[in-house]
Design a protein around this nucleic acid. Sequence first.
DNA 1: AGTAAATGGTAAATGGTCAATACAATAGTC
DNA 2: GACTATTGTATTGACCATTTACCATTTACT
Lengths: 213, 213
Amino acid sequence: MFVKHLPHKTVERLSQYRRTLLLILSKEKTHVFSHEIAQMLHITPVQVRRDLMLIGYSGNLRKGYDIKELIEMIGKIIDTEKGQKVAVVGLGNLGKAFISYFKGKRSKLTIVAAFDNNPYKIDKVYDGVPCFHVDRISEIIKRDNISIAIITVPSEQAPVIAETLVLAGIKGILNYTPKPLNVSPYVYLEEYDMITSLEKVAFFAKKNDERFK
Amino acid sequence: MFVKHLPHKTVERLSQYRRTLLLILSKEKTHVFSHEIAQMLHITPVQVRRDLMLIGYSGNLRKGYDIKELIEMIGKIIDTEKGQKVAVVGLGNLGKAFISYFKGKRSKLTIVAAFDNNPYKIDKVYDGVPCFHVDRISEIIKRDNISIAIITVPSEQAPVIAETLVLAGIKGILNYTPKPLNVSPYVYLEEYDMITSLEKVAFFAKKNDERFK
DNA sequence: AGTAAATGGTAAATGGTCAATACAATAGTC
DNA sequence: GACTATTGTATTGACCATTTACCATTTACT
C-alpha cells in the first residue's frame, strides 16, 4: 500500500476502527455505514469517510463498507506483512497490565519477551511471555528480531534502558516513564505520562465545574 | 488566577514543568533559565516562555525564573486550593500500577479509594488505598467528595461504571478502557487506549524504517 | 559611555487537524 | 422517472500548536 502521508490522528483512528469492526464482525452483519462507525466512536461520519478516503478504500454506495474487507485493508496499511515483535521492559504492575491487556488481541503485533532486574521474575513466564534479565536486552532483541519496546521501568532507569534498546536496533519505543527520553531520529518515540494525564483531567474538571456552577 | 483559556498541551507541559522543577529544587540552584527547562524536556525555550507567558509569570532577565515561585505559580493555576480526591475503579494490574506510581507524588491530588468486584480484594488496603465493592461507588464518592475517577475495569463494564460515576457527581474521568464513553458535557472526559498507542508506534516505526533503509 | 551577549517578551507566519458545508454520482425504491 | 440514502470529494473557516523572527532589557566588559 502506498500512502503518502497519514496524519497521526488518522492512524490512531484507523486502529480504533479496526478494533470496533472486529467486535461487530461476529454478528450477522457484513456491511457497515460510515455513520454507524462514527456513532460507535463518537465522531462524525465525514471524519470516517475522510480517513477511509486517505487509505484508498471505497465502500459500496448502497450497502456501506464491507466489514471484512475494511479490516483487511486497514491491516494492509498499519500492519507489516510478517508482523512486528514487541518487548516489555519492566515487569511491574504496568508491564503486567500491558501483557494481560494485550493477550490474544492482535495477531500481527505480539509481545514475545519481558525484561526485569528482579531475580524472582527472571526466567519465569508471565501470561505466556518469558521474562529475562535486563542485561540480556541486546542479545534477545537481536536474536528474536524485536522491533518495538514498551518501557515501564522506574523513571531513573529509563534513559539507560532506552540507550540499550536503540543500540540493539529497536525501531519504536513507547515510554510510560515520566522521564523524557533522547533517542536517535531513526527511532520513533512516543511518550505518555499517567500523572500528567491525571493532572490534566483534574485541571479541566475544575474548570468545567467552575463554568457550570 | 484568571486565565482566559489554556490550551490542552500547555496544561500538560505545565504539569511537566512543575515535576521537573521539583526535581532540581533540592539542589542549591534557586533560578532556572528557559533554555534549561527546555533542554530537560526536549522542547524549545520559546515554547517554555510562551507557556509561562500564558499563565502570566515573568522571569528575571539575568537570573531566569525563580524556581520556587514558578512551582507555586503553576500550582495556583492547575491545583485547587483544597485539593481534589481521586478514585480508581478496577484494582487490576493497571489500577495497582496507577496507585503505586502515584504514591506520595502529588499533595493536592490524592487517591482515596479503589473499587473492584473481586471479593478477595474488597475491604483490603492496597498501598494505603482502601478497596470497596463497585456497588458502593455512589455512596463513597458522595461521602468522601471524590471528584476524579480513573477507569481501569474490563471494557465491557466501562459504560455502566461511567454512568454510575456521572450520576454520583464525578467531575472528571480518565478512561483507560478501549470502549469510548458517553458522558454528560459537564464532566470532563479523557480517553487513552494503550493498544491504539502501541499500534501507532508500530506504524510509524515501520514507516521510519522504510524511509531510512 | 559604548557595545556585545544573553535572555525574556511578544508578534507573525506556518502547518496540522477538524467541523461544517456543499454537491455530484450512484444505486436502490416507489 | 423522481426520490432517497449513501459515498466520495472539495472547500472553507476556525482553532491550536509550533516555529520563526524581532524587540527590549539587563549585564558584563572594554
